[in-house]
Design a protein around this nucleic acid. Sequence first.
RNA 1: GGACCUGUGGCUCAGUGGUAGAGCGUUCGAUUCACAUUCGAAAGGUCGAAGGUUCGAAUCCUUCCAGGUCCACCA
Length: 694
Amino acid sequence: MESKFIPADVEEKLYRQWEERGYFTAKVNREKKPFSIILPPPNANGFLHMGHAMQTYEDIMIRYHKLQGYETMWLLGTDHAGIETQYVFEKELRKQGKSRFDYDRETLYQMIYEFVEKSKGNIKNQFKRLGFALDWSHETYTLDPKTVKIVYKTFEKFFNQGLVYRANRLVNFCTRDGTSFSDLEVVSQETQGSLYHIKFPVKEGGSITIATTRPETMLGDVGVMVNPKDKRYKAMIGQTVILPITNREVPIIADEYVDMKFGTGAVKITPAHDFNDFEIAKKHNLTYPPVIGFDGKMQNTGIVDGMKVKAAREEVLKQLEEQGLLLKTEPHEMVIKTCYKCGNVLEPLPLEQWYIQIKPLSTKAKQLIEDGKITIYPKRFKRIAIQILDDYIDWNISRQNVWGIRIPAYKCTSTGEWFAAAEAPTVCKICGKTDFEQDPDIFDTWFSSAQWPFATLQTIGQDFFEYFYPTTVLETGYDILRAWVARMIMFGHEITGEVPFQNVFLHGMVRDKQGQKMSKSKGNVINPLELVDKYGADAVRAALIFGTKEGNDVPMSESKVMSMRNFANKLWNMGRFIFMNQNPDAKTERSENEEILKELEKEFAKVEKKYHAHMTKYEFAKAFDLMYDFTWHRLADHYIEQLKDDIRNGNMDVLERLKRIYLQSLRCIHPYMPFVTDAIWQVFKGEDTSLLVS
RNA sequence: GGACCUGUGGCUCAGUGGUAGAGCGUUCGAUUCACAUUCGAAAGGUCGAAGGUUCGAAUCCUUCCAGGUCCACCA
C-alpha cells in the first residue's frame, strides 16, 4: 500500500471494473425490492457542471440501497434540449458565416442531429469521472424512435381527451430566436422606461388623454378604455376617439379593469400586443389587428411598415409632438419580459398554438402530494409545490423551431380541422382523403421531459416498466420544481394512472465560496472536473455534502475539497495501518484493553444505527458528518491510538475486531466516497471483490 | 403586492427547548510511529435586533432590520 491515497491510480480502473462486472446493470428481479431513480436527463451536447455534481445525492441513494440488498436502477438518458441545443448550434453556424435560414428544415435538423451525436459522448464520460453508478446498458435518448412514439401517443391521448387544444392567443414571442415560449421561460427585468401622456381628440368634441409606455402600438389600437366609476370620463363613454396619425375612429369603452389612480385613468387598447388588452378585446368583441410582425418589424400601419419597433416608437413620438399631442413624458419604472435565452425583449404576438389544459392535471397532482402519494424532501418544498400547482396556467407547448420532436398534429386542408395521430397517417382522419398537412411546429422540450420516468422505462421494456415504476425517488435541483417536477407528476399520473415517483428530493444550488451564483460573466465558475483531477472524485463529492443542509445552497471552495481529500487519505491510512499489522502467525489473545474494545463496539453499534436512521430520513449530510467524525476522531484518534501497542505486539484479536468495525465503517462511507473505500476493500479482500456487492 | 429562504467564532456552514459545534484560517506544542494530507492544545461567538412564552430559548411565538430567491403585476 502506498503511504498516500492517489485517486488517479484507482479511479479509472475501479470504474471500469464496476461497469464491466455489471454492478450498475439493473435487472428485473422479483426476489428483491426495486429501488429506482431516473437521472435528470443532461443535455446531449452539454458539459458537466457543478449542478450535475450535486446529483451525487442520487449516487449515494443508489449505492446505499444496493448495499441494503435492493435491486437498484439508476436510469440514464440524454435530452435533445430543443432551443438550448439549437442556440449553441446556431452560434457555430454564425462562426462559419451562415445562419439557420440558409438551410431547409430537414437539412438543418440533420445537421444538428449529427452535431449532437458528435458531442454526446462528452457528458457521459464526465459522469463516469464522478463515479456515478449509472446503468449504461439501458441508456435512452429523447429522440429515440421508441421514445418519440410514446411522446406521440401522449399527445394523441390528450388531444382525444380534450386536454390539448389549439387556440389563437397572444404568446411570448422572441423575434430573434423566431419562436414562442411558455410563461416559465420568460425572464422579467426591471427597467427604467417612460410613460407618455398622449392627447386623443374626441369626435363629439373635446379630447381624452391616455398614458402609455408603448406609443407605437397606437397604430393598431381598437379603442380607449376608462373605469365606469370614473367621474372624469363618465360622460365620454360610448363616444368616438379619432386616433392621431392614422385618423382611425375607435370607441371609448368602460371596464372595471382600469385603475383610476394610474396615469390619466384612460388606457388605449392594443389587443394584438398586450395580454390584458387581448382579454378585454375578447370581452368587448373588439378586433385585434397586429401591427408588429414575427420578424419584429412594424406592419399593416401604412406609416412605419418595415421599421423596427424602437424606430417606429421614435417616429410616432415625433409626429405626436409635431401635432402638439404629446403632453408629457415621465420616467417610469417598468418590468419588461425578456427571452431567457438571448435576452431580447419578448413581443406579445397573436399566434395559433397548442395548449395543455392544466387545471384537471394540476388539481389531481396537488391531491397526490396532499395525500402523501408523493413525499417531498426537504418538507418545506411540499408547500411550495402545492403553491406552484395552484398557480399553474395552461401550457403553450408549440415551438417554431426545428430541433425537437415535431408535433403529430395534422390539418385537413379541405375543412381546416385538426387531428392528432401517433402513427404517421396515410389518410385524413377528418375527410378520409389524402389532403392534410402536419403542423410545422415542434414540442417544447419539457413536453417530452414531463414524460421521462415512464417514457424511459417503457422504452427499455414493459417488464422494466412494471418492475421499476413508479420510481422510488426523483432527485433534482429545486430550481426546476415548476418546469419539470410538477409537470412530471401531472403527466405521469394522467398517462399511467400512477405517480411517476414516490419521493422527491430537492437539492440546492452550488454557489462560489462567497455564496454568489456561479456565472460566466462573474468568472467564478468552478469546473468540477478540474477539481476531480486535482483532488479526486471522492473529495469533490464529499465537499458537496459535508456540513451542509439538504435543500440549501452549497458554497463550493477548493479548501473544502482539500479537506475532504484529506479525509480520503485518512481512511486510506487507517487501512494501511491495519493491513500492515496483519500477521497470521501472531498469537491471538485477550487484550488487557478488553474494556476499551467493548466500549468501541458499543459506540459503533450506536453510530451505525444513527447512520441508517439518517439515511432513511434523507438526512444525507448528517449521516456523512457522523461517519466522518466517528472514523477520524473516534476510531482513529481515540481508539486506535489507545490500542496501538496491543496491535504492534501482535494481538490479532484486537486487530481483527478493529478491522471489522473499520470495514463496516467503510461500507457506510462507500455511497459518499466510492473510490477510496472500494480501493481499500480490494486491498483487504482482493481485486476480484468489491465493497459495492459485499 | 404575495410567498419562501438565510442571518451562529476571521471565512463557509451544521446545530431546532436542557452547560455553544465542524471545516478552513490563526497561535503554541509534538513528531525516526498508518497518515505533516498527521497528532495534542489554545485563542476566538451577548447565536441579526427588540419583546413574549418557559424552570430553562440559537432553537417556539410576535414585531422589526439586513441579504437572497421565486411568483404576480398598472397601461
